[in-house]
Design a protein around this nucleic acid. Structure first.
Lengths: 190, 190
DNA sequence: TTGACTAAACTAATTAGATTAGTTATAATG
DNA sequence: CATTATAACTAATCTAATTAGTTTAGTCAA
């Protein structure tokens, strides 16, 4: 070791906080370095590029969200659990805008670590849906439906893209009603 | 006029083509200028910044998609029309990845022109849903549901974020089944 | 306790791209 | 043919990422 030695975790946590404040696009090594009271080239002792930080931010975000999602689904099951998890998702992504941007844009499959980033949260979804009367193939498709909706909705809210004064919470609630009713219709249970 | 004079449209069309090829993040004034056989500072006679181009690309994309969406819904109505429009959406966004990135990220409400970018396509959706037996307030919410799903799904496909070999087309189809059945359940018609 | 080792900081330099300032060429108009 | 305005150009500036090379200070073995 040498000097005060900043940990890799501190860099990511700092980047997370800063990106949530100023937006991922405006996150710079300069800014991170200043916040940590070091010079920007010193960051290269810990990371390999700005893009590297953004990838790590992506993994950090999915991990953190995964943990919150688990907490949210404790003690409930079925559609109640699904609903709680969706709210946890929305809460996290709208309260961590910068990190969520990274979660969206850097979630490509370039490495195992990246590929596994979302395993936790969508694994939970799997466990919630499994006991229902749905074919396992359809469970996979439904996870994609939910994921698309959740990521899309959060993105639109964060970007302030809904050009309409009606309540966002109501939209989210009704959307969940629609999707859940739709899933039930596949169950043949309705 | 002076010299060969490159039109604003040509700049945007060129930018669209290039961004679809290399990704919006990699689009640069240098690249656009080279493609147009001029020097990059010359672009400033037409645009005010790289961000300005990206905003225009956003508007260009929503406009182009709006036109395709109209075409897709000609001669059909109700849920058939809805389904066709969703396919048109998916087709466009996955065949124009760079432009779609701009459509997602630059769709904030900073000006009337920007606010109106999506009016056409979501207006069509409105017309499709209006005749159904749904409260007008719910129609607005449903448009948000659909929009979230469509944008989210396209983004995930374009980013290759679905880490699963099952068919993407089947996922899309089943998702539409789910959402449409869900909407029907709101109609009380089912 | 000390001296070697190494991690992690530092400064200086390089590079690339966006943007600005100031200059020049050419098409259109009278 | 002369004027004018537009849109090109070159030169210069600025900022941020990244690389190269240097220095400092914890750690650990003798």
């Amino acid at each position: 070791m040498a000097r005060n030695s900043i940990s890799d975790e501190l860099i990511i946590e700092t980047s997370a906080r800063l990106s949530n404040k100023v937006g991922l696009d405006n996150l710079s090594l300069k800014m991170i370095a200043e916040e940590l009271d070091i010079k920007s080239p010193s960051l290269y002792n810990h990371i390999s590029s700005l893009d590297d930080i953004k990838e790590k931010l992506m993994i950090y975000g999915w991990k953190e969200l995964g943990e919150k999602a688990i907490d949210s689904a404790v003690g409930v099951s079925g559609y109640d659990a699904l609903r709680k998890m969706c709210y946890a998702f929305y809460d996290y992504t709208t309260n961590n805008k910068g990190v969520f941007q990274a979660m969206l844009w850097y979630n490509k499959f370039k490495s195992d670590e990246m590929a596994n980033a979302t395993i936790k949260i969508f694994g939970i979804l799997h466990k919630i849906l499994e006991p229902l009367n749905i074919s396992s193939n359809n469970v996979e498709h439904i996870i994609r439906t939910l994921r698309s909706f959740l990521e899309g909705f959060s993105l639109l809210v964060n970007n302030n893209s809904f050009g309409n004064p009606i309540s966002i919470k109501e939209s989210f609630d009704l959307s969940l009603d629609i999707i859940i009713n739709g899933i039930k219709s596949l169950e043949g249970v309705k």
